[in-house]
Computed example of a mutant assay.
Amino acid sequence: MTLLHTLQKRYTTKAYDGARRIPDETIAQLLEALRLSPSSVNSQPWHFIIADDNAGKERIAKATPEQSPLAYNRPKITGASHAVLLCARQELSDAYLTTLLEKEREDGRFVTEEAFATRKKTLTHYVGLHRQAGNLEQWTQKQVYIAQGFLLLSAASMGIDATPIEGFDPTIMSEEFDLAQQKLTPLVVIALGYHSEEDSNAKRPKSRLAYEAVFSKA
């Protein structure tokens, strides 16, 4: 299957077959794809919460309360094989930046101490710019959506259906997983699994604006 064919065929799943579970090996590959997602200056300003059983999915689904306007998203979470909550870091502390740098050193990215010093200067410079501008949290959230794209494409390439869900109560989600204490912001839930016969979106043609509407020449 070519990349374009994958992109043409993937869609947002509306209903899941709760009897089908994604194999552990496949989930492991999807989570590794998520971990390997790119981010600005390799800041990796995210944390992912994995629900791989009914209890975990129910915890995430608490943020889509029954009898609320968000309840329509609840079956997508509980009926999927797995669900992943993508969170953004609200701050990038000096200690966190040190952890990043030391992991890069451990992974052999610096041939010399001079290279390490240059990398440290670059990382702290760009993070410092966003701290000064007061938009660090918005910046980290943008990186999380890059990771979302990698997960969605990876799932589609492996024949796994997916649903990105922003329609949940962030306050409930934060309380359920103690996210405020960890200085994390819940952004999006990705349901993963196999669509059911009731999936209304499965056979609809894909619709995107024409090439001429979205591209122009520099």
Rank of each mutant, 00 (worst) to 15 (best):
Q67V: 07
A95P: 00
A156H: 06
P75Q: 01
F116M: 07
H82W: 07
A162C: 06
L100T: 11
V84W: 04
L151A: 13
L100Y: 10
E104H: 14
A61G: 13
A80Q: 06
A83R: 08
Y145E: 06
A155Q: 05
D161K: 04
A156P: 08
E104M: 15
E66G: 12
D107G: 11
A71Y: 04
E106D: 10
L97E: 09
G149C: 07
Q90I: 10
T118H: 12
S93Y: 03
Q138N: 11
A117M: 13
L151Q: 07
Y72P: 00
A156G: 09
E106V: 10
T171W: 09
Q132M: 03
G159C: 12
H125F: 13
V84K: 02
A83M: 14
G128K: 03
F177M: 07
P69E: 01
K62M: 14
Y145P: 03
V144Y: 03
L92K: 01
P164T: 11
T163H: 08
V111S: 15
I60Q: 08
G108K: 14
N135I: 02
N73I: 00
P65K: 08
D169Y: 02
D178Y: 09
H130P: 04
S174T: 11
P164E: 12
T99H: 15
L123E: 01
K120V: 05
G167L: 12
G167T: 10
D161I: 03
R131D: 05
T171H: 13
Q67D: 14
Q132N: 04
T112Q: 14
E176A: 12
A80D: 05
T112Y: 09
Q141C: 10
